[in-house]
Write a protein that binds this DNA or RNA. Sequence first.
DNA 1: ATGTCCGTTTAACCTTTTTTAACAGGTATT
DNA 2: AATACCTGTTAAAAAAGGTTAAACGGACAT
Lengths: 230, 230
Amino acid sequence: MDNPRILLAEDDPNLGQVLNEYLMLKGFKPTLCVDGQQGADTFKPGKFDICILDLMMPKKDGFQLAEEIKSIDPEIPIIFLTAKSMKEDMVQGFQVGADDYITKPFSMEVLLLRIKAVLKRTMSGTHSEIPDEVTLGCLKYQYADNSLTTPSGPIKLTTKENELLKLFVENLNQTVTRTVALKKIWHDDSYFNARSMDVYIAKLRKYLKEEESLKILTVHGEGFKLVHMH
Amino acid sequence: MDNPRILLAEDDPNLGQVLNEYLMLKGFKPTLCVDGQQGADTFKPGKFDICILDLMMPKKDGFQLAEEIKSIDPEIPIIFLTAKSMKEDMVQGFQVGADDYITKPFSMEVLLLRIKAVLKRTMSGTHSEIPDEVTLGCLKYQYADNSLTTPSGPIKLTTKENELLKLFVENLNQTVTRTVALKKIWHDDSYFNARSMDVYIAKLRKYLKEEESLKILTVHGEGFKLVHMH
DNA sequence: ATGTCCGTTTAACCTTTTTTAACAGGTATT
DNA sequence: AATACCTGTTAAAAAAGGTTAAACGGACAT
């Protein structure tokens, strides 16, 4: 499935709107419902690939809504959004067939990962990124292909090498902070991941040696910057 | 500017966290404060490029916080986040010097556009950009490359050396006050940073020795001035 | 299951960058 | 001239980054 459809039920209009838009940006097709009743009215079998439901909502809470949905389509995956204090209540959540839950406040990154994980489990749908070909001096970078072609031959990039290089190419001549890179690629900003990243910086620098005008500069205390000089 | 720093004051932890992360991913450097008081404690002149303040917050509301911030740095741009019902109150908002406001619920894209628009407006003029490559007598300074080429070979500049030299070159023959340099490069005008800067002045002076006509003069009690004599 | 391969992480050690500290000179003010 | 306050210089401590190799762990083939 190309654009997984999400039933998003969240009564806080601020959070709801932001989540709705974020999911859209990430290639999903979310439908925002502002309470449990609207969620129940909106759900139709076959119309959605996954449901993300807030627990505390007016008119009909997340559990009630989930039960209704499951009675219509027992296969559809459900993720609950829950306050930390409601953690224990998730026993009930899993009883009604929850696939996962996230405690508020949560990071969008985490939400995205959970959604992807659940979808991967439940459907064979794959998300295809835009295949890109970028020419940087004498180098040809094909992100979709994990490959970097240099005058002395092509290099097969590993997953992490590829994601990091992509991040730099997307932000050419701009500083990519360590935090952003770690969050985007390692999904966790920790000491060891930071050191791991340093190892990958070294690898990329080695690959880029063939093109004189291309350099990864370090911005001390901030991050790194891929610069292309003319 | 490279990574605009944002003071983000929002008491709703869900919205706050999501916004914080979104702004980070979009290349900003947000600092999240959970109430007005924390916002006031966090703000320091030179530490931020723009403030995004929720109006309704515990301890200190958005207006109070804005007033404090403006009394410290009257130039800093401020955007308010406000409930629709509070629209009329924005008269007061503009009185305390708001640059823009957004009514909740809002779309992240709108927020992004407003931020960019405000930054464009406020940062133009204050930022005389220099070309990638500047020739100063027998020296060639390549800002983008962190390098200074002298007759006796190229010098790789560190991040701080580079930023400081850039500031001087942008203000050739003009006094750069200590305060301005500290705010722009160290993001905090404190005693120790001032001494750190002195160390860097010494380093730059050493590098510039090769070109007789180029000197960093001290303007006592004010700052420094890079002069080029013919 | 078991072993091997390969990407990734962890660890140890080293280098560079930046900050802090201490002291020595200057400059303005009274 | 005495004082207080800046600035210059140098060295050290502290923080951040660079390099390399071994350990880990999942995927795959045997």
